[in-house]
């Protein structure tokens, strides 16, 4: 079983992802919880972040990830809603979700 997601990068983050703003990705719907395959959990945002790092991120990991989550200064929207309202990394992904990562670090 897999999930189909739409991922968008903004604020300069696209430069790290082949300079492409929009991506359509397919990821497994469950992830190992570290205690054997009987205990798989639904994939969450934290999983997606690392999946993106492993599969789409072309350079400079440290500009995307820091301390097991997105780098400070990166805003995440889940279906047009602040991820802080959805549980941040613990939000469980659904098929068809749209996730947006925007970097706010591009100066003023």
């Amino acid at each position: 079983m897999s999930l189909s997601l739409k991922i968008e990068f903004g604020g300069g983050l696209e430069l790290l992802f082949s300079n492409q703003r929009s991506h359509k990705v397919t990821i497994p719907s469950r992830m190992p919880s570290g205690q054997g395959s009987e205990n798989e959990r639904p994939v969450d945002l934290k999983y997606l972040i690392f999946w993106l790092k492993d599969n789409l991120l072309k350079e400079r990991v440290e500009l995307f990830i820091e301390n097991e989550t997105v780098r400070p200064g990166i805003l995440v929207l889940v279906n047009d809603t602040d991820w802080e309202l959805e549980g941040e990394g613990e939000y469980q992904l659904q098929d068809g979700d749209e996730i947006v990562f925007i970097s706010t670090l591009h100066g003023g």
């Binding site: 903004g10 805003l75 602040d82 947006v100 925007i102 970097s103 706010t104 670090l105």
Partner: peptide, 10 residues
């Protein structure tokens, strides 16, 4: 804040 600017821009 920067976050509000980013959301506005988006």
């Amino acid at each position: 804040g920067m976050k509000e600017c980013a959301v506005w821009a988006w």
